[in-house]
């Protein structure tokens, strides 16, 4: 009886966490196990699966230069997109956080407005803006700035543009949450001690907003590295990302085992990035941005 009483408090966190743990196991762990099993099978000649334990898919994914190159291209595009999101996202986040208008909530709502529209529609909207007959070319032709329409679409630049468009709200929201939690008296104290506005920003506001910046960067990078719609819609023939390989293996080539190996490889790589990030940035630092 005494032992049971002693164990009860120890079990309580597990009992409380059980719904969440159950969801993670059912919706994440078990499906990943299925994918893992699939990755050791082979595609048969007609497109069905040859059950067994084969390492062929893994050997191909880990040794083929093609996959490595596309992976590096994916990480590069995701990193550039995340960096651009930092540069473009900080000022609006700062403006909203420091705004004293009573319509601050409206500003935040406006930030979330793009989420109400389908990601694919948002991505495709750039075709109407940057296309040969799009709004930008029509405007430039009308002003006489150009005599022939510019070919802007379907290259790596437009893929990055589409990703930034998609990811920017995530970055702004993360930075905003971090900035909003900074006590304004700290800046006032720095100013009263002789710091200029710029110095106060560099030495007080920026360091304290870094957790939000870090969380936003990680989120943007991971989401960017896992996308496949944007390069399909806005990219040219060569502008593929790693998730496009997964899509092609599974949908076009009907090679579920290879697609499984590819998707697990991407999961492991992005998971490693997250782990390294938290190792050096500190998971506590990331958590601070949401306090």
């Amino acid at each position: 009886m005494a032992a049971s009483d002693a164990e009860a408090p120890g079990m309580r966190p597990w009992i409380l966490m059980s719904p969440a743990l159950g969801a993670v196991v059912l919706l994440l762990a078990i499906p990943i196990c299925f994918i893992l099993v699939y990755s050791f099978w082979l595609r048969s000649a007609v497109g069905s699966e040859q059950v067994g334990f084969h390492l062929d898919n893994w050997v191909e994914v880990l040794t083929d230069r093609f996959y490595r190159d596309i992976l590096l291209q994916t990480l590069r595009i995701a990193a550039i997109s995340a960096l651009l999101c930092i540069l473009l996202g900080y000022v609006p986040a700062y403006f909203i956080a420091r705004s004293t208008t009573r319509h601050k909530t409206v500003l935040i709502l406006l930030l979330m407005l793009p989420f109400w529209i389908s990601y694919i529609i948002r991505t495709m909207s750039w075709i109407n803006i940057l296309g040969v007959s799009g709004a930008l070319n029509v405007f430039l032709l009308w002003t006489g700035a150009i005599s022939e329409p510019l070919q802007i679409l379907y290259n790596e630049g437009t893929v990055i543009l589409g990703l930034v468009h998609f990811l920017l709200p995530f970055m702004i929201l993360n930075i905003y949450v971090s900035l909003d939690g900074i006590d304004p008296n700290l800046v006032d104290a720095a100013r009263s001690l002789g710091a200029t506005g710029w110095q106060a920003f560099l030495q007080i506001t920026l360091p304290l907003s870094l957790p939000g910046l870090a969380a936003g960067s990680l989120l943007c990078f991971v989401l960017g590295a896992g996308t496949y719609i944007t390069p399909m819609v806005l990219g040219g023939p060569r502008d593929a990302m790693f998730a496009n390989l997964v899509f092609e293996a599974i949908i076009t080539q009907l090679d579920w085992p290879l697609g499984s190996a590819l998707s697990l490889a991407l999961l492991v790589i992005l998971g490693s990035v997250v782990m390294l990030y938290t190792r050096f940035a500190g998971i506590g630092q990331l958590a601070k941005s949401f306090r």
Partner: peptide, 23 residues
């Protein structure tokens, strides 16, 4: 062809858009 092409289309709607817009 790949090196000369602007875009591979993936659907009928995309094909029509690329031709109709003069891309």
């Amino acid at each position: 062809h790949r090196d000369l092409a602007l875009k591979y289309w993936g659907s009928g709607a995309e094909l029509m858009s690329l031709l109709a817009e003069g891309e």
